[in-house]
Design a protein around this nucleic acid. Structure first.
Length: 315
DNA sequence: AAGACCCGCAACCGCAACTTG
DNA sequence: ACAAGTTGCGGTTGCGGGTCT
C-alpha cells in the first residue's frame, strides 16, 4: 500500500482473486473503459493504469496465458519484429490471444538466450551443462538483412541502409578458426537474430519435407549450407529456434569428429552446382546461400503442392 | 540441505498520444 | 488554444519457481 497526498492508499503488487473478480464485474457492467473511476468509486485501491493493465494482460477473454509460443507464433513475431521493430502492440494484434506484454517478454527472453549462446565461450558453458549439455559453443551464421526476404517498412531501422551496401555474408565453418565471431552489439541487432526468416528453408511446410534428400549429382543446381543439406533428411524438423540451434550444434560436433580436412564450409563448386552457382570465390558462394536464390534453383512447379500461408486474420 | 544462479512472467514506471472540458 | 485527465505503449524491474553445485 502506498499513501497518496490526498490520504488515500494505492495498492501495488500482485493481484488477488478478489480484486480480479471486482475488476471483472466492473468491466461487465461498464465495459473496458473509465479505468480511473474504479478507484474513485472505491471499488479497488488500484490506479486506473494498473486496472487496465490487469484487464488487458490477464483478464481479457480469449487470452492464451500460460501457453508457450508455438513455432508458428514465433515465426510471426520474428517476421513482424523485423518489419515493425519493437512495436509490440502492433505485433500482438497479429497474434490472437497474445498481449503486447507477452510478445515483449517472449522477445526479450529469446534475445537473452541468443546472446548467451552466441557469446558464451566453451569454458563458461560448463555452468549450463546440466541443463543443456549439447550447447557448448555455437558457430555464428551472420546473415544480413539484404539476404532476408522480410519486407521492411521505410525507416523501420536506420541500420538497414548501411548493411544493405555490404555483400550478403554468411560465415560458417566447422573449424573453430573459421568461425567468424560477431561482436555483441551486432548480435543484438534483431535483424541478425532472424535466422528463421533469413533461412526460410528451415521453415519448410509439411509437403516439402516429403521431398527426398537432394543428391549433389542431381541436375538441379542446389545451393545448400551444410546443415541445410542435413535438415532435408526425412525426419520431421522442429523449427523452434532452440531446437534448431541444438540441431546445428549436433551437426557441428559430428563434423568435428571427422578428419581435420573435412570442414563445414560448403562443398566445392564442382560437387555442388552448375550454372550461376558454379563459382569459386568466397563472395559469390555466399550470395548463393540467400533464401531467394535457394528457391530459385528449384523447378518452378515443385511448389504447386504447397498451401499458401494463411493471412493474419485467420491466425 | 542450502545457497547460488537462471529464467519466465507479472507488474510498475515514464513518456507520448489522445480526449475532453 | 490550452490544460488536465485518460489511455496506450515500450522499457525495466522484482518476484517466485526450478535447477545446479
Amino acid at each position: 500500500m502506498e499513501r497518496q497526498s490526498d490520504g488515500t492508499y494505492i495498492k501495488k503488487g500482485p493481484w488477488t482473486g478478489e480484486e480480479d473478480e471486482v475488476l471483472m464485474n466492473y468491466v461487465k457492467k461498464y465495459g473496458p473503459k473509465g479505468w480511473s473511476s474504479i478507484r474513485s468509486m472505491g471499488l479497488l485501491p488500484r490506479t486506473g493504469k494498473s486496472c487496465r493493465l490487469r484487464w488487458v494482460n490477464k483478464l481479457r477473454p480469449n487470452l492464451k496465458s500460460g501457453c508457450k509460443f508455438s513455432a508458428e507464433e514465433e515465426r510471426v513475431v520474428i517476421e513482424l519484429q523485423a518489419q515493425y521493430g519493437n512495436k509490440w502492440a502492433k505485433i500482438a494484434s497479429h497474434l490472437s490471444g497474445r498481449t503486447d506484454n507477452d510478445v515483449k517478454n517472449f522477445w526479450s527472453a529469446r534475445r537473452k538466450r541468443l546472446e548467451r549462446i552466441l557469446q558464451t565461450p566453451t569454458s563458461k558453458s560448463n555452468k549450463n551443462k546440466g541443463k543443456d549439455p549439447v550447447l557448448h559453443e555455437m558457430p555464428i551464421m551472420e546473415v544480413t538483412p539484404s539476404n532476408c526476404n522480410v519486407p521492411l517498412e521505410q525507416g523501420s531501422s536506420s541500420s538497414h541502409e548501411d548493411q544493405s551496401r555490404k555483400p550478403p555474408s554468411i560465415s560458417f565453418s566447422g573449424n573453430s578458426e573459421d568461425f567468424r565471431m560477431v561482436p555483441l552489439p551486432d548480435l543484438i541487432n534483431p535483424d541478425l537474430l532472424n535466422l528463421e526468416t533469413c533461412l526460410p528453408i528451415l521453415d519448410i511446410p509439411q509437403p516439402l519435407q516429403m521431398i527426398p534428400p537432394v543428391e549433389p549429382s542431381m541436375n538441379y543446381p542446389v545451393t545448400l549450407l551444410p546443415q541445410l543439406q542435413l535438415d532435408l533428411a526425412p525426419e520431421p524438423i522442429d523449427i523452434n529456434f532452440m531446437d534448431m540451434l541444438k540441431h546445428q550444434q549436433q551437426i557441428v560436433e559430428s563434423e568435428e569428429s571427422k578428419p581435420k580436412s573435412l570442414t563445414l564450409t560448403r562443398s566445392p563448386p564442382s560437387t555442388v552446382t552448375k550454372g550461376k552457382a558454379q563459382v569459386g570465390d568466397k563472395e559469390d558462394r555466399r550470395i548463393l546461400a540467400t533464401p531467394d536464390s535457394f528457391f530459385d534453383e528449384f523447378p518452378t512447379d515443385m511448389f504447386d503442392c504447397l498451401e499458401p500461408l494463411p493471412n493474419s486474420s485467420e491466425w
